[in-house]
Design a protein around this nucleic acid. Structure first.
Length: 725
DNA sequence: GTAGGGTTAG
């Protein structure tokens, strides 16, 4: 049996050990054998517990090596409490006992306080203690790590390669890459682990992908033997800098060195191919893998969204247990494909296996139901949360905003800032809700503006972009301009927002000026930018400029025109009276022309009195969307202008028969109810519902008269001036 | 008998 253990054949060794016990050959078993057998358990508590029983009954547990091995076995099998129990009952623990328990802690703060207890008990740290404690030191424990570093230097342990490597990785984890590199450079006896430690340091810290790649190339040049850890870090760095070419070369090297089926290496290769948008290659890697772990399955589910649900089922058949990340990927895949049934099923599954205690999973579910336009379900998930972090609030607010429930978005925002600290996404969502809603007072937008200054988020590109867009959509172009000028970093979103703001105001010169400036600064316009620019060209009758821009959008920027772009172009040509050209463009639209394109053309027919084309378009429209009032109204107005009253009557009758109603347009006004409290009042034309209707109409008449008076006075002055000149 | 380096994500 000892032979088997020494030859690293743990299963055979365990079998022999068990047979020994069953046959009662206990006299041959000594403390060394028990320790070796425990090591052979590799963290499997089942045989481990049996051996524990034997160690107690045979009295071998009194050997410190046996107790230490038992503790190690329990630490490795995740039963740390049992290990700690053994430790607390030891009368005379040695350094190995202390180190073993130390290695078993889950949380770094617990490990560090145990290290302090060692110190208080007069236990002198050995190199193993240093390496073990250093492994627990991350960002928050950096000062502790530094103290350990100087202690290790004092005792000369920093020259031990194990300790040196732990020091390098501790500094890497704490983002002290310069120091990590210095330690690495000054190491007299670097090994593969030292190289991997510095390599992974650069990989883990964002923005250092290139340094990681250079380190890897140096490793190859120095003829270092590479292993799975080197490859995982190096491939991950390639993914970070999106260098597919180098990644493929590394994949070749991986195949050559025999790591082509290693689970972690394959996982990171899949991630590389997915980041570089070669999904098929990621799938190929997944196919050749022998054993797939939860990360492999999670990655392929996130990469291959169309097959996510069936992959998830396959994963379960494969006996791999999902974790929170798996559900986040799966729910995301389900959301973007709007698979309502599957979404509800997975929600149920999460409830059954108690995964709703994972806040991230709940946040994904909130977002999923928002995508399904089922905000009541989003709210339900939200209300059942144990702890509401800002991400959960954000998911709910953006859900309301995206579903056009602006009032709810605003109310949720107000509750959110009372409970949590808002971040850039909170303001992004609520500002977009306020921007989209005419029935929310602009005062609320200004209130948000003051909040975001209070939270020092006014210089954030996401927030200032959303703020500028909100003011623009709500008609306050001066504020938009101000926000735009004060922005430290002008994103594509900001440029597009300011351009569309001026487009909405019909300010052709500013739109073209900003558009040219945007191009000059090397910011790529997107389809929305072009939509604004084309709209304003149409309004100002700049048809040839518009056509040129449309062509450059398609050819230079390779932006596929959307139905909105087409209707914008048709509108532009139509307004200019180039009706045949407009109809020609409609016929070029791939697939069926949409509702808005035809409505634009019909509008143009009305302006230019082209009844013949108008009738044709209106027929097509009424067939497409028999309940849409716009087409009926336009056509009836066209007939009315031409004096075809019998046709007007026919259309009006048709509308009544089909139950088509024209939607009423409303306006809003802020009214002060009491000091500080605002009430937004909605009214339509000829509205008599307000209790003070009489006074309101009188006042409106007064204002109208005053306007008329002012206008006449202005005219008189102009007249006088002209005469003087 | 105890120890150092790696991957996935809202």
């Amino acid at each position: 049996m000892l032979d088997c253990l020494r030859k690293n054949l743990p299963f055979q060794a365990l079998d022999i050990f068990k047979r020994h016990l069953q046959l009662g050959f206990v006299d041959n078993v000594d403390h060394v054998t028990v320790a070796l057998a425990l090591k052979a358990c590799h963290g499997d508590p089942k045989p481990g517990c049996q051996i524990h029983g034997f160690a107690v009954s045979s009295g071998l547990v009194s050997y410190i090596t046996v107790s230490n091995s038992l503790m190690n076995m329990y630490c490795k099998s995740g039963k740390f409490a049992k290990a700690l129990c053994i430790f607390e009952n030891l009368s005379d623990p040695d350094i190995v006992s202390w180190n073993t328990v130390l290695s078993g802690f889950q949380k770094s703060e617990d490990a560090l306080s145990f290290a302090l207890r060692m110190n208080l008990n007069g236990v002198v740290f050995d190199p193993v203690s240093y390496t073990t404690i250093l492994a627990f030191c991350s960002d928050d424990e950096f000062l502790f790590g530094l103290q350990l570093h100087s202690l290790a230097m004092k005792f000369g342990f920093d020259c031990e390669v194990f300790v040196g490597n732990a020091l390098i990785s501790m500094h890497s984890r704490c983002r002290q890459l310069v120091e990590a590199q210095r330690l690495f450079d000054e190491m007299p006896n670097r090994d593969l682990v030292s190289w991997n430690a510095i390599l992974s340091g650069y990989t883990q810290e964002g923005d250092h992908g290139l340094e990681a790649i250079f380190t890897f190339i140096e490793m190859v040049r120095e003829g270092m033997k590479l292993d799975h850890v080197s490859f995982t870090s190096a491939v991950s760095a390639c993914g970070q800098v999106r260098n597919l070419e180098l990644g493929r070369q590394m994949h070749g090297l991986i195949m050559k060195t025999g790591y082509g089926r290693h689970v972690s290496v394959c996982n990171v290769l899949m991630s590389l191919y997915s980041k570089c948008e070669v999904v098929e290659d990621a799938k190929l890697v997944f196919q050749i893998m022998n054993d797939r772990n939860v990360v492999s399955w999670t990655t392929i589910i996130s990469v291959n969204e169309e097959d996510a649900v069936s992959l998830f089922n396959e994963m379960r058949l494969d006996g791999v247990y999902p974790n929170d990340v798996t559900f986040i990927g799966l729910i995301h895949a389900i959301s973007i494909q709007t698979l309502v049934k599957e979404g509800q099923m997975i929600h149920g599954f999460c409830i059954r296996i108690s995964f709703l205690s994972e806040p991230n999973v709940c946040n994904s579910l909130i977002t999923m139901y928002a995508k399904f336009e089922a905000m009541e379900d989003s709210l339900k998930v939200f209300e059942e949360l144990n702890y509401r972090e800002i991400i959960s609030w954000n998911a709910l607010i953006s859900g309301y905003a995206q579903n056009g429930l602006s009032q709810e978005a605003l109310c949720t925002f107000i509750s959110a800032i009372m409970e949590s600290k808002p971040n850039e996404y909170t303001f992004g969502s609520v500002l977009s809700a306020i921007g989209a809603a005419e029935d929310i007072s602009l005062k609320q937008g200004q209130r948000c503006h003051s909040y975001l200054i209070k939270f020092r988020l006014d210089m954030d590109p996401i927030v200032s972009g959303a703020l500028l867009d909100m003011y623009a959509k709500r008609g306050n172009i001066c504020e938009s301009q101000k926000v735009f000028c004060e922005m430290p970093e002008r994103t594509q979103f900001a440029w597009t927002a300011i351009i569309s703001a001026y487009a909405r105001h019909g300010d052709y010169d500013s739109v073209i000026k900003f558009f040219k400036e945007m191009e000059r600064e090397g910011v790529r316009p997107d389809s929305i930018t072009f939509l604004s620019v084309l709209t304003v060209c149409g309004r100002k009758g700049m048809v040839d400029v518009g056509r040129q821009l449309f062509d450059s959008m398609v050819k230079e920027y390779q932006i596929e025109p959307s139905p909105e772009h087409y209707s914008c172009m048709v509108d532009m040509l139509g307004r200019a009276g180039r009706l045949e050209e407009a109809e020609d463009l409609v016929s070029q639209i791939p697939g069926q022309p949409g509702l808005s394109v035809l409505q634009s053309l019909l509008g143009a027919c009305k302006i230019h009195g082209n009844m013949e084309m108008g009738e044709r378009i209106a027929d097509a429209l009424m067939e497409m969307e028999p309940t849409e009032s716009g087409s009926y109204v336009l056509m009836s107005n066209l007939y009315a202008e031409k004096g075809h009253w019998e046709k007007v009557a026919k259309i009006r009758k048709g509308m009544r028969e089909r139950g088509v109603k024209k939607e009423i347009g409303f306006s809003w006004v802020d009214t002060r109810v009491a000091r500080g409290s605002l009430c937004l009042y909605k009214f339509s034309s000829g509205d008599m519902s307000h209790p003070q209707t009489e006074e309101i109409f009188r006042m409106a008449e007064c204002i109208g008269l005053e306007m008329k008076f002012l206008r006449e006075r202005e005219r008189e002055r102009e007249h006088l001036q002209d005469n003087l000149v």
